[in-house]
Design a protein around this nucleic acid. Sequence first.
DNA 1: ATCTAAAATTAGCCTTGACTAATTTTAAAT
DNA 2: ATTTAAAATTAGTCAAGGCTAATTTTAGAT
Lengths: 233, 233
Amino acid sequence: MYTESVENYLKAIYKLSSRQGGGYASTKAIAEVLEVRSASVSKMLQRLEKMGMVHHRSYQGVQLTSQGRRIALRTIRRHRLLETYLYEVLGYSWEQLHSEAELLEHYISDLFEAKIDEALGFPTHDPHGDPIPSKEGKMPDIQHIALANVEVPGEVVIARVPDSSAQFLCYLKEVGLLPKVSLKVLRKEPFNGPLLVVLGDREQVIGREVAGKIWVKKKRDLIDGGRIDEENS
Amino acid sequence: MYTESVENYLKAIYKLSSRQGGGYASTKAIAEVLEVRSASVSKMLQRLEKMGMVHHRSYQGVQLTSQGRRIALRTIRRHRLLETYLYEVLGYSWEQLHSEAELLEHYISDLFEAKIDEALGFPTHDPHGDPIPSKEGKMPDIQHIALANVEVPGEVVIARVPDSSAQFLCYLKEVGLLPKVSLKVLRKEPFNGPLLVVLGDREQVIGREVAGKIWVKKKRDLIDGGRIDEENS
DNA sequence: ATCTAAAATTAGCCTTGACTAATTTTAAAT
DNA sequence: ATTTAAAATTAGTCAAGGCTAATTTTAGAT
């Protein structure tokens, strides 16, 4: 078992380095995410290097090793499974989820992880819609369109539409989202505002209500090393 | 929130000092329970004293303050609620219970405690039959006769008999355990062996099968400060 | 090509909670 | 009343993981 601190550093590095293509996280960014000073980060990076968790090029940045990524993904998996369990089974409210999961993710056992996974029916996404990595460290390849990464807009394909009412499907056809097309998410407004997407040669606004029911999948050539999603939660 | 270490010391002191009437725990005994060296205990006791958790008379022993007892009981409550939840809801096996609860007891929130308490229907005893302290730090006053403290044999009264089949009640009457009488537990054999109890002027052997269905209550004048049970679990 | 500000690192300190070794206190046996 | 062994405490060390202050490196502006 690794310490809470080590797991939090690995999680932060994972999220930061997958946020942009480069794959390197800076000391300063890590310090900001974890709310510690840069000096503490520098020191920890050396310890993580010794443990074989990261490749650290001094003054350049860090990257996870496969070992480091394994632990980061395991921690993220536990966080998201916990949030799902707290929400679905124990009736936590939205705001109470994060802080509980953020701590417990470091202390539950493999068995606990397996038990809640089973109790939930092996979910692929948490209550925020974020993908839950598999036990083997693979991210599910579909996600809510509303969560598709906007900073690095990429083409996605509609993969699943859980509301199969005639009314809803009709509406999707009307605006040209069905039959399944490839599209690009251009811009998201905050606070459940609408999305702006590119459909072939034109743009289309999609309300959040609708967006919440559309699951997309990145186009195959855009997936690099299973690193699909990097939203925080 | 207190550290895992602090909570474990308080739990150990609680259990040791209620194991015998005196109410003091020795440095050596604490060291043995926690599997650390005596020197480490001495140092921690000074820290706990400063925190207002214990009264420590050098070379004599320690006792919890009411503040210390509050934290110890809260930790024990969480441990036993967790074990009950893991067993009843998540389907843990007997042997898997302890280690998971032993760690998580330090990291769950008040809310988590309340949620699993509610999900279990506010249980008073864990799967081992050990009493679960209330949120206010009161031990339920009944327990399985099989768990009644043998080192300090005390008189107890039969308080509850959950198996109300005519057959079972008949048997209890036959051996003189019903209608409710006062009795004293003399000796327990290990490995689910029988109990030997004193009933008025004679002794009676009770098999574990039967014992498991008899709940007793200490006689009022034997209860000191709510400190009724001190089995480990 | 140089300068400078931001980023990163190093050096040194602190607390927690372990440890060992040395010392002190207590209590039991003579 | 001494002696002595066990128990307890103190002194000093170590690793994690924070911190501040000082220094070094990098990269962007001139």
